[in-house]
């Protein structure tokens, strides 16, 4: 199967690979996995006091589309508030990367990873 140019670009030069300390107060960590293909994705956001996402990192074990999807969303979430980050839809990711139907689940995984990271961040700041 041929990957689109954008997928290849992110796959060969993934943005924001790495990790923040999970214990940091401003860090939200999202871990998700896709049983059908065995892909595992960790996405972290670092949120400033004003509620804006300053930085994001990811580590993904999976196919090129999964890596590209997570790389892309780490770029997208920067500068957004956590609420705005929740508005990112898998369809936007799939469209941007021109993912074929069989790879749509990779974009779903990335969307779920953002949601999980935001949920983790919110849990830390409850009450």
């Amino acid at each position: 199967m041929a990957y689109s140019e954008k997928v290849l670009d992110h796959y060969e030069n993934p943005r924001n690979v790495g990790a923040f300390s999970k214990e940091d107060e401003g860090v939200g960590t999202g871990m998700v996995g896709a049983p059908a293909c065995g892909d595992v994705m960790k996405l972290q956001i670092k949120v400033g006091k004003d509620g804006v996402i300053e930085d994001a990192k990811f580590k993904t074990y999976g196919c090129g589309s999964a890596i590209a999807s997570s790389s892309l969303v780490t770029e997208w979430v920067k500068g957004k508030t956590v609420e705005q980050a929740l508005e990112i839809k898998n369809t936007q990711i799939a469209e941007e990367l021109a993912l074929p139907p069989v790879k749509i689940h990779c974009s779903i995984l990335a969307e779920d990873a953002i949601k999980a990271a935001v949920a983790d961040y919110k849990k830390k700041h409850e009450g």
Binding site: M31, V32, G33, A34, P35, A36, Y61, H105, I108, L109
Partner: peptide, 22 residues
């Protein structure tokens, strides 16, 4: 439905273990 294509919310402990294995 075993949710192989839809269920991405595995237990974080399990996913962390998977990460470490990988």
């Amino acid at each position: 439905d075993a949710g192989l294509h839809t269920n991405t919310a595995m237990s974080p402990t399990f996913l962390m273990e998977q990460m470490e294995w990988r």
